[in-house]
């Protein structure tokens, strides 16, 4: 049985990894997709369904960890819509 706390932790961890993408488009997509996916499955009640969704999320967390790391290894110039970080 998956606890509510675990699901919330998964959501937080996924978003954390999504923010690590260096590529603007992939980062924005990951954030949007994670958010919408949790919203879409908010009403799940059956324990098996929740477990399936949760396990899927765990797999995606592993994927995001790998891919966000790769994205940080090969970086390109920022897009014209991306504000540059100012170091003061």
């Amino acid at each position: 049985m998956v606890q509510q706390k675990q699901v919330l932790k998964l959501y937080k961890n996924l978003l954390e990894k999504a923010y690590k993408f260096d590529n603007y488009n992939f980062r924005e997509y990951a954030k949007r997709r994670i958010h919408d996916s949790f919203k879409e499955h908010k009403s799940l009640t059956k324990p098996e369904e929740i477990a399936q969704f949760y396990n899927n999320g765990i797999n995606n967390l592993a994927l995001l960890t790998r891919q966000s790391t790769i994205s940080q290894m090969y970086t390109f110039d920022k897009l014209v819509v991306e504000p540059l970080k100012q170091h003061k």
């Binding site: 994927l63 110039d77 540059l84």
Partner: peptide
């Protein structure tokens, strides 16, 4: 205050490889 790389709006020519595909 912004980056210089153009926005990609030519997906009929080709699309970026999805990170899940690369994985």
């Amino acid at each position: 205050k912004f980056g210089t790389r153009p926005i990609y709006l030519d997906v009929q020519a080709t699309t970026p490889v999805d990170p899940r595909v690369l994985d």
